[in-house]
């Protein structure tokens, strides 16, 4: 086991300390009588509710109903009407209530959460995404699973499975590591002011400051990279050298259009084309702290080769 004895002991101590900490009930239990009224018709839902997502949590807000009615509203009319949907607050696609009404019900408790403070400004609200579109109110659900987002964002799902991708489907990067689905003021609902500030959180080695900056890199990582996945190596928007040629058309004899003859198997292999193309030598493309060498530009930080 690679975690190390010190860390494993720390986790064990924390676990035991956690058990020792909780000693008494701080709030009322479920109003079993009220719940049982619903259980007569909705046995599975009630069973899941009692054990699931809102087990205990809903009552911490001081709600006095302590039952299904906490979210679904009074049930007398619903029972009297034989269970018609328009007499009860429902959630999801088949609800008789509007998306706003559904979300309002959830926000009556959850609006205090900082992560949903900007719900009103976010794209999901604008696009009629309700809380129940993603969350399960009865059954516990892993909200970090990418499938939650992929069901709507089918193009991103395809990108995440491409040849080069962040470890999203491997479960090591979740959508919510970078995005706040509850709304942000930034584009793409990312958890930073701009793309670079977001990427630098994990890729601290790319922050600099550098003596030699590569301006498009500093301005926007997405000038060269596709964050979710790409058919090109290293999440690039285009394969090198053609990506580099999109700006550096005349540099370094690159005016010559590189073709099939310039691969390993071609008649004129060149390191500008085969393998990583320009990156074979210009690997410090994110920035360099090496000095310039005006005696020998191929040994110079200025050209990102050092």
């Amino acid at each position: 086991m690679n975690i190390g004895k010190g860390k494993s002991r720390f986790l064990l101590v924390m676990l035991l300390a956690g058990f020792a900490f909780g000693t008494s009930s701080a709030f009322a239990a479920i109003d079993q009588g009220a719940v049982d009224k619903c259980k007569a018709c909705h046995e599975d839902e009630v069973t899941n509710f009692v054990k699931g997502t809102h087990h205990g949590k809903v009552f911490a807000a001081g709600d006095k109903q302590n039952s299904c009615e906490s979210c679904h509203g009074p049930g007398e009319k619903h029972i009297a009407a034989g269970g018609s949907k328009d007499t009860i607050i429902g959630f999801g696609k088949k609800s008789e209530q509007s998306v706003e009404e559904q979300s309002k019900q959830c926000l009556s408790c959850h609006a205090k959460n900082k992560s949903v403070a900007m719900w009103d400004i976010g794209k999901h609200k604008k696009n009629d995404v309700s809380c129940a579109s993603c969350h399960s109110t009865h059954v516990e659900k892993d909200m970090k699973a990418p499938e939650n987002c992929f069901s709507c964002h089918k193009d991103v799902k395809a990108q995440a499975k491409r040849f080069s991708h962040h470890p999203i489907i491997e479960g090591k990067v979740s959508c919510s590591d970078c995005h706040n689905p509850h709304g942000t003021t930034s584009h793409g609902m990312i958890k930073a002011e701009n793309n670079n500030q977001l990427c630098y959180k994990c890729h601290a080695d790319k922050r600099g400051p550098f003596v030699w900056e590569h301006a498009p890199v500093e301005e926007n990582c997405n000038n060269c990279h596709v964050p979710h996945g790409s058919q090109n190596m290293k999440l690039l928007t285009r394969r090198a050298p053609y990506l580099c040629n999109d700006c550096h058309s005349a540099n370094h004899s690159a005016g010559t259009t590189l073709d099939a003859t310039n691969g390993f198997k071609g008649t004129a292999p060149t390191n500008k084309t085969f393998a990583r193309g320009c990156i074979n030598c210009h690997n410090k493309i994110h920035g360099s702290v090496a000095p310039a060498n005006t005696n020998d530009k191929y040994m110079s930080g200025q050209y990102f080769v050092r």
């Binding site: 000693t23 701080a26 709030f27």
Partner: peptide
């Protein structure tokens, strides 16, 4: 492991 007692919860 998930555990609850009253308002307290713990998961590992």
């Amino acid at each position: 492991i998930t555990g609850e007692v009253g308002a307290y919860h713990l998961g590992f």
